[in-house]
């Protein structure tokens, strides 16, 4: 069954493959188009440089009218990221717009890494060090950058790193994304 949200997520995926933004990648997990994994590379010339951070994105049938739940799986040290990896970012909460796609979400999170908002701290130690002791802050960030290499590729995150992950036929909504509109609309009346 193809619902509008699944149809849209297939398009997000196609778009991300055809026109990938620099330094981010993402893909649905093999058995569930609503559950994605993504990688964000730490922006160059920032303390996060060379980090390869894994994230999970959980969508609902209400996407894109409601944002996905996005979390860092890799350990993160950042003023706006909670201990459980949840991210405090306005566009994922009260300023979400259905016109954002997965690429926009991932690039916004990438920008957030080096442009934290210390006024809405999710990690008060990180916020404090960022404002008062930048050297110690960068040292802590360097630690999680190094950890991101160690944990990389250990588990489910593998799917994202395949060049063409996952193959079209592995996905529920399969090959012909563009031709499924009819089915897409009529499939949502379950």
């Amino acid at each position: 069954m193809t619902t509008p949200s699944r149809r849209r997520l297939m398009r997000d995926f196609k778009k991300l493959q055809e026109d990938p933004p620099a330094g981010v990648s993402g893909a649905p997990t093999e058995d569930n188009i609503l559950a994605w994994e993504a990688i964000i590379f730490g922006p160059q010339e920032t303390p996060f440089e060379d980090g390869t951070f894994k994230l999970s994105l959980e969508f609902t049938e209400e996407y894109p009218n409601k944002p996905p739940t996005v979390k860092f799986i890799s350990k993160m040290f950042h003023p706006n990221v909670y201990a459980d990896g949840s991210i405090c970012l306005d566009i994922l909460q009260n300023r979400w717009s259905p016109t954002y796609d997965v690429a926009a979400i991932l690039t916004s999170i990438q920008s957030l890494l080096d442009e934290p908002n210390p006024n809405s701290p999710a990690n008060s130690l990180a916020a404090q060090l960022y404002q008062e002791n930048r050297r110690e802050y960068e040292k802590r960030v360097q630690q999680i950058v190094e950890q991101s290499w160690l944990n990389f590729g250990e588990n489910e995150g593998d799917a994202v790193m395949k060049d063409e992950a996952p193959d079209a036929e592995d996905l529920p909504a399969g090959e012909v994304v563009d031709d499924q509109m009819d089915e897409g609309a009529s499939g949502s009346n379950a």
Binding site: T3, P4, E61, E62
Partner: peptide, 15 residues
């Protein structure tokens, strides 16, 4: 009318 009452489809049209 079912479509009009299904969140995902109806809200796509609203958007």
């Amino acid at each position: 009318w079912e479509h009009l009452n299904a969140d995902s489809c109806a809200n796509y049209l609203v958007m």
